[in-house]
Computed example of a mutant assay.
Amino acid sequence: MLQAVHHIAIICSDYAESKRFYTEILGLETIRETYRKERDSYKLDLALGDTYVIELFSFPNPPARPSYPEAAGLRHLAFTVHDVEQETARLEAMGVKTEPVRMDPFTERAFTFFRDPDGLPIELYEEGGEAK
């Protein structure tokens, strides 16, 4: 029986840029960084608080993956925040373009979207509700 999500794996096209984005802008903590010489690939294990959440990978010349919000497959990655307006302002001040904040009609919680350096949609969802 499933107990929890263990991690989410992301392959990036520019390792240094994505590492900076996920650690310096989003504030995830580095658990471990490994260079795998035989694959010419980095693997960066990241945590949010005490929870291991993301494996960030680099590979030479990864193929592009078209991402559209309503296409089949992973739709987006969502993070809970205390105050969406405050976090959106912080991201905008760091040069991250965010969508206008909206209200979820079912939970009445604020949410917004932005993109990582490779265009992966990321959602901020105000705590107290369930992300859709």
Rank of each mutant, 00 (worst) to 15 (best):
K97D: 11
V101M: 07
T30I: 15
T51Q: 15
L56S: 05
S58W: 02
E55P: 01
F59K: 06
F79N: 07
R109I: 07
F106C: 00
R75G: 07
R109E: 07
R39C: 03
D45G: 04
R65Q: 13
P105S: 06
D83E: 13
Y52C: 01
A78M: 01
P66M: 00
N61L: 04
Y68A: 00
F113W: 11
E55D: 15
F114N: 06
T112Y: 03
D104L: 07
I31E: 15
Y68H: 10
A110T: 06
K43R: 13
H82R: 14
T88E: 03
V53L: 02
P63F: 00
K37Y: 08
V81T: 12
H76S: 01
P62A: 06
F114W: 11
V53G: 04
D45M: 12
G73C: 14
R36M: 14
R75M: 10
D104P: 03
T51I: 07
R32E: 15
F113M: 10
R75L: 09
R90C: 04
T88M: 05
Y35H: 14
R102I: 02
E33Y: 04
I31T: 14
L56D: 03
E87K: 11
G73N: 14
V84T: 08
P63N: 01
G73Q: 13
E38G: 12
M94P: 00
F106G: 05
A78N: 02
F111S: 02
T34Y: 02
Y42M: 01
D45N: 08
T112G: 01
R65C: 03
P66A: 07
F79C: 05
G49H: 02
A110F: 06
D40R: 09
E33G: 12
T98C: 15
V53E: 02
M103T: 15
P60L: 10
A64R: 13
R39S: 09
M103I: 15
V96H: 05
P62V: 05
L44N: 09
V96E: 08
F113S: 08
R36V: 14
F106S: 05
D45K: 05
S67Y: 03
L44V: 12
P105D: 13
Y42A: 04
K97M: 11
F57S: 02
T51H: 12
V84W: 01
H76M: 00
A93L: 09
P60C: 13
E33A: 12
R36G: 00
F113T: 10
S41L: 08
Y42Q: 08
G95E: 09
F114T: 04
E87T: 13
F111Y: 15
Y42L: 01
L91S: 04
E92M: 03
F57I: 02
T51Y: 07
A47Y: 02
R65G: 00
P69R: 13
P62I: 11
V101Y: 10
E87W: 10
A110K: 15
P66K: 12
T80V: 03
E85A: 15
A110R: 15
A47N: 11
H82D: 15
V81Q: 06
Y42G: 03
F59V: 02
A71D: 14
T51M: 00
V84C: 06
A72D: 12
Y52M: 08
R102S: 12
P66Q: 08
T88A: 09
V81N: 01
T98S: 09
D40G: 03
N61F: 05
I54G: 04
A89N: 12
S41D: 07
L46G: 04
R32F: 09
F106Y: 03
Y42H: 15
P69S: 01
F59Q: 06
Y68C: 00
E85G: 06
